[in-house]
Amino acid sequence: MIAIIDYGAGNIKSLQFALDKFHLESELTTDPQVIRDARSIILPGVGAFKDAMDALSELNLVTVLKQEVNDGKPILGICLGMQLFYEQGFEDGSWEGLGFLKGSVNRITDTVKVPHMGWNTLTAHQESPLLKTIADNPYVYFVHSYAVGGNFEADTLVASAQYGGTIPAIVKKRNIVGMQFHPEKSGTTGIQLLKNYGELI
């Protein structure tokens, strides 16, 4: 069972429906015990960086997430969920993230339209089981105004997109996987990416 952290008001039902498509059992939860018992955690993305961190704190989930991730439990962060994995977020201020990965989250340059909204292509930076049977340069659906940068570790970059610069799109370090786009909204490519993740856990 995969624990999907239900800590806000966004559309997380679609994520669960996507997992249902290949019979990966999941549960929307904020219960630390359910999270501990799960074989994997998915941290979806809702709202703003600070609000999301505040919500996780109020639900007393920061500690349990850190423990589980340090103990090696596979975790997938989607959109803002991936951004929270980093040390610091600069969305309307400067806020501390979960710190699983090195780097910070910064606003996309105003030389392009913000939010980065729509279907963009991925470029692979390394071979990865996450990209198994995925076509070259597939389109996936992005919707975000902030992106990972700072002292980001280049060797964690699995795939990127180009939008006013290089946007880290899939990252992986040990048991930690992040996807900046929405796999649950990225058609058959997105479903395959989730399935590939499911095979790693």
């Binding site: 008001a9 966004g10 809702v46 703003a48 105004s145």
Partner: peptide, 8 residues
């Protein structure tokens, strides 16, 4: 926008 994010 503040509650759910501008993107939606």
């Amino acid at each position: 926008a503040l509650k759910f994010g501008s993107q939606c």
